Simulated scan of single mutants.
Amino acid sequence: MALLHRADLTPTKLELLNAWLPTRDWYPGPAAPDLAKVAAFRFDDPAGEVGIETLLVRAGDGPVLQVPLTYRGAPLDGAERWLVGTTEHSVLGHRWVYDATGDPVYAATLAATILTGAGQAAEEFEVDGVRQARANDMHVTGSGHAGAVVPAVTGVLRVADTHPTRIATDALDLTVLRVLTDDPADPGDAPTLTGTWAGSPTPRLLAYAG
């Protein structure tokens, strides 16, 4: 379960991405995008320290782009390359926002979701001490099965910052699609993560292990 706060972010997530996305080699849009959010989902950090959210965004009538992010209360050592920017959260204070493909917490949760057949985290807001459920606007599913053995991911060794993005960890390799098209690369027999959202009811390939 992801516990969220009704809060203001300055700058907003989309403002950060408007500046950051054009610096990526895999980004196919305009140099000065005005991004719109398409959908989003979250994973739980078992330690409860790192926010993990994947945004689907689009610039104009361009393709849907997948941007996983992690939110931290302090800088991640050695991850300057993956820093998207910083923002002020009206409840949590200063937050460091990272491209999650370089964050080992994201890699570990992505691997566990794929291999165990899990999905996105349920989302709740806390308002005046009362928790309120928020409907997910995106649903994701791993192709694995409950009880599967998940290698312990403790570090990211290399990231090929391309489309798709390939993450080599100390336990297994992961691939994250950045540009979501109707004809993605075939992952073969690899375990996958697929997702659906409003306007895309057919499961779309998002990531796979391998």
Rank of each mutant, 00 (worst) to 15 (best):
L157V: 15
A122L: 12
A107G: 03
D183V: 08
H145Y: 14
P184E: 09
T165P: 05
A190I: 03
A121D: 07
A79Q: 09
G85K: 09
P201N: 11
G85H: 03
V64G: 04
R134N: 15
T181L: 06
M138K: 00
D103C: 03
A122Y: 05
G85C: 10
Y71C: 03
Y106V: 02
H163R: 06
V150C: 08
P187Q: 01
D77V: 00
V64W: 10
A146T: 14
A135Q: 14
W197F: 06
D137Y: 06
G93A: 07
A74K: 13
E124K: 13
L177K: 00
T162A: 15
H89Y: 08
G155V: 05
V97C: 06
V156M: 02
T113L: 10
W197V: 11
Y71T: 03
G147K: 08
P75T: 14
T141P: 04
Q132H: 14
H145D: 12
D137N: 13
A171D: 10
G93K: 02
R72Y: 03
P201V: 10
A152S: 13
T196K: 07
A121V: 01
L92E: 08
R166Q: 15
A185Q: 14
V64N: 01
P68C: 11
Y71A: 06
T175A: 12
Y71V: 00
P68A: 03
P68T: 04
V97P: 01
R72K: 10
G155P: 03
G78D: 13
V97H: 06
P164M: 07
R131L: 11
E124C: 09
T87K: 01
T154K: 10
G93E: 02
G78E: 05
G199T: 09
P184R: 07
D170I: 09
D77R: 12
R72M: 12
A171H: 06
L157S: 15
G73L: 10
A148V: 07
R166P: 01
V97L: 08
I114A: 01
A100W: 02
H145N: 14
D183R: 15
R166H: 14
E88I: 11
A152W: 12
D186F: 14
Y98H: 15
V150I: 13
D161M: 09
R131W: 10
T113A: 04
A111Q: 11
L65N: 00
A121E: 02
V127E: 13
G142Q: 02
A148F: 09
G147P: 08
E88N: 13
V176C: 02
A133H: 12
L110P: 01
V140C: 05
A118R: 04
L83G: 00
V130G: 13
G117W: 09
L92C: 15
G147V: 12
V130H: 11
A160M: 15
L193C: 04
T192L: 02
A198K: 12
T113W: 08
V67F: 02
D128R: 15
R166Y: 12
